[in-house]
């Protein structure tokens, strides 16, 4: 089962050192259930903040978010949301299987929300079958993040939120992880929403790419990706891929596409 996400005129302000910073302003977005969406934008555009609002880590100052009709707090308490952080955030004293099973320990045996995949099957799915008994410190960053994805999936979430999950990985590992993620999503068919920094990745992965701009954070474009599924790396040579990449690039930089704003590499 998966749920849609409805975001209506959401805004959030932070108060720091007497100043009010508008992190998000009038953000509206609806994400159909079972779809795969990536949010892209420069640093500080509020894309992670938006994800944290959906996950009920933050509360909006204005507007409303619903997940399958319920407010985020309810969806969270119902364990309908799986969240993957930028860092794996595994508990170092639990081995990989115990880390993946942590959500099961939290919901207890009485919950209706049981995965039809056991932690061991999930570890197989993310390619960590042989490492069930390893401690997180014994695994590479990429493997740890796979374990974090398995943990996010163990309660069969209706919505999977990923906050730059592969941002700390090298380019080659990232490519591999993206393909893995697509394969896993195809099997789980949950609504997936991922925050990214990479244009090519966003286009390659998504049904729709959401472009955001900073100060104040808002959505500037939504670009549907017409590539068929399942996706393959060969599609990166498809003219439709190139067209979509250029659309996203123009949405991000507008007329300044030639002179990139400083500080970030795209």
């Amino acid at each position: 089962m998966s749920r849609d996400i409805e975001i209506a005129q959401v805004g959030i302000q932070f108060h720091q050192r007497g100043e009010t910073v508008i992190a998000l302003e009038d953000v509206s977005l609806s994400i159909p259930k079972g779809s795969y969406t990536e949010i892209i934008g420069p640093s500080c555009c509020g894309k992670s903040t938006l994800l944290r609002l959906i996950a009920d880590i933050l509360a909006p100052s204005s507007g409303k978010i619903t997940i399958g009709g319920s407010p985020p707090a309810e969806a969270r308490r119902d364990h309908a949301i799986g969240f993957v952080f930028q860092q794996p955030t595994l508990l170092p004293w639990r081995n990989i299987r115990q880390n993946v099973a942590l959500p099961l320990d939290v919901v207890g045996r009485t919950s209706h929300r049981r995965s039809d995949r056991t932690p061991d099957q999930l570890l197989e799915l993310v390619g960590l079958g042989k490492f069930a008994r390893s401690l997180p410190a014994e695994l590479s960053g990429g493997m740890q993040q796979r374990a974090a994805i398995a943990r996010a999936l163990v309660l069969q979430p209706d919505v999977l939120l990923l906050d730059e999950p592969f941002g700390a990985l090298d380019e080659i590992t990232r490519q591999k992880m993206n393909l893995e993620l697509l394969r896993i999503w195809t099997e789980c068919r949950t609504t997936a929403l991922l925050v990214t920094h990479s244009i090519a990745e966003a286009v390659f992965m998504s049904d729709e790419v959401v472009v955001m701009s900073p100060r104040p954070g808002r959505i500037t474009a939504r670009i549907a990706i017409p590539l068929p599924r399942p996706r393959s790396l060969a599609m990166m040579r498809d003219p439709a891929f190139t067209v979509a990449v250029n659309q996203v690039r123009e949405a991000l930089f507008g007329d300044e596409a030639e002179t990139l704003p400083g500080g970030e590499a795209y």
Binding site: A55, I57, R76, R77, H79, I81, T89, W93, P103, V106
Partner: peptide, 27 residues
């Protein structure tokens, strides 16, 4: 704070957060 957020996302009770996170981290 990331680990605490992770427990929050799992809707862990304060007692579960103590048992699964705070105490082992303090050992």
């Amino acid at each position: 704070s990331r680990q605490r957020e992770m427990m929050h996302c799992l809707a862990a009770s304060p007692l579960q957060t103590l048992r699964y996170l705070i105490l082992p981290a303090a050992l």
